[in-house]
Design a protein around this nucleic acid. Structure first.
Length: 323
DNA sequence: AACGCGACCTGCGAGC
DNA sequence: TGCTCGCAGGTCGCGT
């Protein structure tokens, strides 16, 4: 379900409920959801209990919560002597993950996998729940490491110059204030592949998944198979602007729902049905072509073992990889 | 370096 | 009604 805008909606919603709160207990109801925590369930829980959540940070589709560890009872500053946190609780939503704030009396969700109990604060839900139908997502505890470019690790309320280790291999996303178009363009040009493949490669640019890749390409009038190594700077600029625009629009639409008690990860509401121009619209008229009196039908093709949607008229397939 | 594929999972709707 | 098939927004790791 989630690409960058959905994860950012979760991040914002979560930040306002969990910052500054201490984890008092953790229930792992399905250990498959923490399989990326190599040291097992006991270690996972041990790392979290008594830790304080400092922030909720996102880069691309990775979300993490830097943790302040408690001082040892004997006064030893322990693993976290300075002010900076060294570990974080990492979350990836995969295809179907949700992070929900809930009151304890709310019945367990069908696919509840992990329950995190938080210190009591008046008028705030006491539990953070990880719910995931397909179990492609998960939680784990990871180290924080310095960023390569020295900038903040990701987007958060109080950005740190460190990044969760498992997210350190991915590029900055287009909504990151430190996103560099030049760095993106350089990477794209150095690849010998098709444009959509590069867009979906999180080490080239992060946060873009199948939906927003198709939408950005449609907006920029580019075909998914366009060769990256011959892409003109102006085309790349148009593409990045398109990706930013469509993701910001999605963010605005998603933003309306996170005033509710829980972080809304309800996904397909509102925005998806109304605002997509290409994704999921096979057989429908291309709106842009229709405006100038053309009747062009959006087509669906298999590409990279998934569906791609294009307008055959305004996104023509490149013949020699160039145009 | 790049690619194609399988693995990891559950559930839904279409079609028979 | 019940079965099988194809499909779903993501990532990771393997062999070629």
């Amino acid at each position: 379900m989630p690409e960058l805008p959905e994860v950012e909606v979760v991040r914002r919603g979560l930040a306002r409920w969990v910052r500054g709160r201490t984890i008092t207990g953790v229930d792992v109801l399905d250990s498959r959801s923490i399989r990326r925590h190599a040291l097992g369930t006991e270690d996972f829980i041990g790392n979290l209990v008594d830790a304080t959540v400092l922030d909720v940070v996102r880069r691309g589709k990775f979300l993490w919560m830097p943790l302040a560890m408690p001082d040892s009872p004997d006064g030893d500053p322990g693993t976290n002597p300075g002010d900076l946190p060294k570990v974080a609780l990492m979350a990836h939503l995969g295809m179907s993950g949700q992070l929900l704030m809930q009151d304890p009396d709310v019945a367990d969700e069908k696919h509840l996998k992990v329950r995190i109990r938080l210190s009591t604060v008046p008028d705030m839900p006491e539990q953070l729940r990880f719910v995931d139908q397909r179990i492609f997502g998960g939680l784990f505890v990871t180290s924080l490491v310095p960023t390569v470019d020295g900038g903040p690790g990701g987007l958060g309320e109080t950005p740190l110059p460190e990044i969760a280790e498992e997210a350190s291999h991915i590029a900055r996303d287009p909504l990151d204030p430190y996103f560099s178009f030049d760095a993106f363009y350089k990477k794209v040009k150095s690849r010998k592949t098709g444009l959509k493949r590069a867009l979906l490669d999180q080490s080239v640019v992060s946060g873009i998944g199948n939906i927003y890749a198709d939408e950005a390409l449609w907006r920029a009038r580019l075909h998914y198979a366009r060769a990256t190594d011959t892409l003109r700077r102006a085309d790349a600029e148009r593409l990045v602007e398109a990706a930013k625009d469509v993701m910001n629009a999605a963010l605005d639409a998603g933003g309306t729902s996170f005033d509710s008690l829980y972080v809304n990860v309800n996904g397909d509401s509102g925005y998806f049905a109304r605002s997509l121009n290409a994704y999921g619209r096979a057989g429908e008229l291309c709106g842009r072509c229709e405006e100038i009196g053309l009747r062009s039908i959006i087509k669906r093709e298999q590409f990279m073992n998934r569906s791609s949607y294009t307008c055959p008229v305004c996104q023509p397939r490149p013949r020699n990889g160039r145009w």
